Simulated assay, not measured.
Amino acid sequence: MSAPTDPIAHFRSWLEEARESEPNDPNAMALATVGAGGMPSLRMVLLKDVDQDGFVFYTNFESQKGQELLAHPKAALCFHWKSLRRQVRVEGMVERVDDAEADAYFASRPRDSRIGAWASDQSRPMEGRFELEKRVAKFAARYAIGEVPRPPHWSGFRIVPSRIEFWRDRPFRLHERLNFVRERDSWRNEVLFP
């Protein structure tokens, strides 16, 4: 079998297999950013789209990850599918999705999730759960009739990959590693030692 030449198509095929075997959130990915002091920060987010332009997720721009990505537009992702014994690592520059793309995705979310995007001051301290519940009630009342618009502080990021590595578990820790590196408009691939 020959090595794949299109890492995005290869990723999509692995993601499709994960959707069939992973019990929860096959689109979950660890997102690494870097703060002002150079300290890395890591958390789980959900992939919402992937195409030749990159990997897309959505968040509150006022959150820790939002602030870090706006200040330092570089990130790394890691997908780990335990049931398949595979992982994919992605590194690249980050760009904001356009307003039309963000609006379309926001409109597709459940109404309560859209209200939550208004109610949560994500990553900031709160006095207690009741404070959040009051804010949810306030915004639910404000948008009781009609559509819930996308908040100005809520949108998406696209990680434009410069490197994608596919890892597959093999016996005796002799794993398979296939690395893709972007070179202008094409990809160079190489097999790495485990």
Rank of each mutant, 00 (worst) to 15 (best):
Ala76Leu: 07
Cys78Asp: 03
Pro171Lys: 12
Arg158Ile: 10
Arg142Cys: 06
Trp167Ile: 02
Asn60Pro: 05
Ala144Ile: 14
Glu147Arg: 08
Phe172Thr: 07
Asp169Cys: 09
Ala75His: 03
Arg86Asn: 06
Gly146Val: 07
Ser155Gln: 06
Ala141Ser: 13
Phe193Cys: 00
Ala71Pro: 04
Pro171Cys: 08
Ala144Glu: 15
Arg170Asn: 07
Leu77Gly: 02
Arg177His: 12
Ala104Leu: 15
Arg170Ser: 10
Gln52Leu: 12
Pro171Gly: 02
Ala104Gly: 09
Arg173Asn: 12
Trp167Asp: 00
Glu95Thr: 07
Asn189Gly: 00
Asp185Arg: 08
Phe193Glu: 08
Ala71Val: 01
Glu101Met: 13
Val88Ser: 02
Glu147Trp: 03
Ser155Pro: 03
Val191Ser: 03
Phe139Ile: 09
Leu84Lys: 04
Pro152Gly: 13
Ala102Gln: 12
Asp99Ile: 10
Tyr58Gly: 01
Gly128Gln: 12
Cys78Ala: 10
Val94Ser: 02
Arg173Ala: 11
Asn60Phe: 11
Pro110Tyr: 10
Lys65Trp: 11
Val94Gly: 05
Arg111Thr: 12
Gln87Pro: 10
Arg150Phe: 08
Ala104Tyr: 06
Arg129Asp: 13
Asp112Pro: 01
Phe193Met: 08
Gln67Pro: 01
His72Pro: 00
Gly146Asn: 08
Phe172Val: 06
Gln87His: 13
Arg173Glu: 10
Arg135Trp: 09
Asn179Ser: 15
Glu127Ala: 14
Asp121Thr: 04
Ala144Val: 15
Ile145Gln: 14
Pro149Asp: 09
Pro110Glu: 14
Phe55Lys: 00
Arg177Ser: 05
Gly54Met: 07
Ala137Ser: 15
Ser123Trp: 14
Trp167Lys: 00
Met93Glu: 09
Val191Arg: 05
Trp81Ile: 05
Ala119Tyr: 09
Trp167Pro: 01
Tyr105Glu: 14
Tyr58Cys: 01
Leu69Glu: 04
Ile115Leu: 13
Arg109Glu: 13
Cys78Pro: 05
Val136Asn: 04
Lys74Thr: 14
Gln122Pro: 07
Asp121His: 11
Leu178Lys: 01
Arg184His: 14
Leu77His: 00
Trp81Ala: 05
Leu174Lys: 09
Arg142His: 09
His153Asp: 13
Ile115Thr: 04
Lys138Gln: 15
Val90Ala: 02
Phe79His: 00
Met126Thr: 07
Asp53Leu: 08
Phe139His: 05
Trp154Glu: 05
Lys65Thr: 09
Val94Arg: 01
Glu91Val: 08
Ser83Trp: 06
Gly54Arg: 02
Val50Pro: 01
Glu101Gln: 14
Ala137Arg: 11
Arg124Val: 12
Val160Pro: 05
Ala102Tyr: 07
Phe61Gly: 01
Arg150Lys: 13
